[in-house]
Design a protein around this nucleic acid. Sequence first.
DNA 1: GCACAGTGGAACATCGGCGTTCCACTACGG
DNA 2: CCGTAGTGGAACGCCGATGTTCCACTGTGC
Lengths: 193, 193
Amino acid sequence: MDMREDRTTAVESGSRARTRRAILDAAAALLATEPTASLGDVAAAAGVGRTTVHRYFPDRSSLLAAVSTDVLDKVATATERARLDDGPAAKALERLCQEYFELGDSLTLMFDSPMLMDAADWEEDTPADLAFLHAVRRGHAEGGIDAGMDAEWVRSVLWALLYSAWEQTRHYDTPKHTALTQCLHTLRKAIAP
Amino acid sequence: MDMREDRTTAVESGSRARTRRAILDAAAALLATEPTASLGDVAAAAGVGRTTVHRYFPDRSSLLAAVSTDVLDKVATATERARLDDGPAAKALERLCQEYFELGDSLTLMFDSPMLMDAADWEEDTPADLAFLHAVRRGHAEGGIDAGMDAEWVRSVLWALLYSAWEQTRHYDTPKHTALTQCLHTLRKAIAP
DNA sequence: GCACAGTGGAACATCGGCGTTCCACTACGG
DNA sequence: CCGTAGTGGAACGCCGATGTTCCACTGTGC
């Protein structure tokens, strides 16, 4: 078997892997607040030259795709950490909310990136999606989650509350823990039957 | 007194007023889904020539500013229609939610336009803002609104739910009344003490 | 018919971001 | 010391969006 080339975990000298990360992180953070930021801006934010950015990501779409899958990865691991199958489903969603909140700026990208990223792997049902849907259905059966709320609607509400909470920490001087507390409190009431 | 020039209600032959509206509406609808749409796209969506757009709005920023104040106007009248001072505050917020929902695509602009519009009159406290804050405080006193929810947080939640509901009608095949019902239902639970 | 408001389109110059190429510099291991 | 990997910067051509100018067309009222 020929191992074509594994883009994500390609053989990269520690140095290359580090700058790659720097660019990805800077891009995620910058694009979250300034969706139309130029590649020059991204390069500056990452502390590298514009040429270097092009060395790692030939064109803008490559960078966007990489950021997309990177964020998707973070979401996936966060979902795993939430252990959606443990305990009451309602509590599981609260844990999920906490984990997602930790993603910081990245969740802003997740929220309104449909405009930004046309990544092919966006509309697909990821394992995280399936786990989420399963948890909601379990909640419906257990009676811990309002049966009148469509799973899709629960997902929307969760993300919307997360986004709002994160906005509060950005635009106003709300400390993060306060925002998260409000968010969880509201989520709890919203999904309760 | 010299009436400088009243930009909003300037003396415009019916024809001019009509095309102006067409451009404004098309711009609002288009920018809501495609924030980086070109002026040519806006012109096409409005059914006019690119030249005509420039005739009414010299540069892009002018158009954006006009759209901004236009949307702000719609929000203001919608807020008035909600009669926030009548009846229980919680019910008043539900009425407000319904009125805002009618704004359609425009509310998408309101939600993530902070990136789009740098309108000077954005951060100011409009009468609509004050009425809203007053209603929330009234709800706190009456006990109809969760006193643990900051007025700012209530506003965020309201907008977030509205945005989510509208998204549901766009991306999925959820009929509008269903989305609105879900939205109101969730809002009611969220703001209840 | 005629003036005039309103419009669309073609053409043009400009500007900024993009993608590419080339070269010089630094660090590091042989 | 020398080759190599990694980088930054300057320079260039390209392209799409923008803003402007000019001209031809259409309607409406006089």
